[in-house]
Design a protein around this nucleic acid. Structure first.
Lengths: 164, 164
DNA sequence: GCAAAATAGTCAAGATACTTTATCTTTTGC
DNA sequence: GCAAAAGATAAAGTATCTTGACTATTTTGC
């Protein structure tokens, strides 16, 4: 018995191995559900990209540069994002008393309501998901993701690729 | 004891509840690792978006319209994606003998190599991840994601939003 | 058997969400 | 004083979509 024809592929093996696909699909499903629910609650101009600010902004405010680092994007890109979210009224820029160059981006009253709504929305989606897979498995999912997320940050991405 | 000041927010509660963030971060981490490894293996023009084709294209070929549906995007967007991946030499369009309107997108020899490399890459990342959280938890993650993914497809996204 | 409707795919333009590069101002830390 | 850092502003480029309009076929309804 010779080996399979060399042109053949086992694409099923690829799909069974590739956990990236289910990860991304579930993440996008969550994002779509969340956005639809924000829309229902009147936050009808909120965009997927705005999540990057809301997810990292500290309750007491955060500098733009720090936000950019946390979100893993350029200061300019974060500046554009903050411009938009400021226009929507959810955040404001105030001078940083400890550094005259810096400004602190912080939630407005409306932004705080957004976060409270976001908490409810996250709970609602959590309920939808636990109805599908059960509370226990959902909590396992959360734990595993959190563990993986915190540990994966330390790992190098490209195994010494560098410039050859 | 009165309730907390009405302006206060518990952003920690939001972050603890919001599973969307860890989902997206881990998904993006996987994607970055995979792309770096594809790059190392010479697939240096592969883009994140190309994953949408590679993930759904059947071993014996698939129609563009079907690919678009599977990936949840417009025919035009999928057409552009296929254009690029065809330019890179990984797929080709051939006429569908059973329907003169249709074309079948299928892997070239080079595309089959890409899938074989992809299988190895997915295994490598799986190894990195299991080194972080253990085999058992990694397999749990895969199971839970697959279950959630298949079941979430049936769920309506926006609870009867519709037009008011 | 044939006109109308549906389907497969393409072409073109525009929107979104960034990125990079570059310049400028203000302020800080020595 | 002066380099460096925080941020704003602007221009151009890239990636990844969308929508609308169109052609070429196939399917359908009678």
């Amino acid at each position: 018995m010779k080996k399979k024809e060399s042109g053949s592929i086992d694409i099923e093996t690829f799909r069974a191995t590739n956990i990236g696909q289910p990860l991304m699909e579930v993440a996008k499903d969550f994002q779509r559900r969340a956005l639809a629910k924000f829309y229902e609650r009147g936050h009808d101009e909120l965009q997927p990209s705005h999540q990057a600010v809301l997810a990292y902004l500290h309750a007491s405010g955060t500098r733009l540069t720090e936000l950019a680092e946390l979100a893993g994007m350029s200061k300019q890109a974060m500046g554009q994002l903050v411009d938009e979210i400021e226009r929507l009224g959810y955040v404001e820029r105030v001078p940083d008393p400890s550094d005259g160059r810096a400004k602190i981006v912080r939630f407005t009253v409306s932004g705080k309501k957004l976060i409270r709504d976001g908490t409810k929305i996250a709970s609602e989606i959590q309920e939808q998901y636990t109805a599908l897979i059960g509370v226990k498995r959902f909590e396992q999912l959360r734990e595993i993701l959190d563990e993986l997320r915190s540990k994966a940050k330390m790992l190098p991405i490209g195994d010494e690729v560098g410039e050859k």
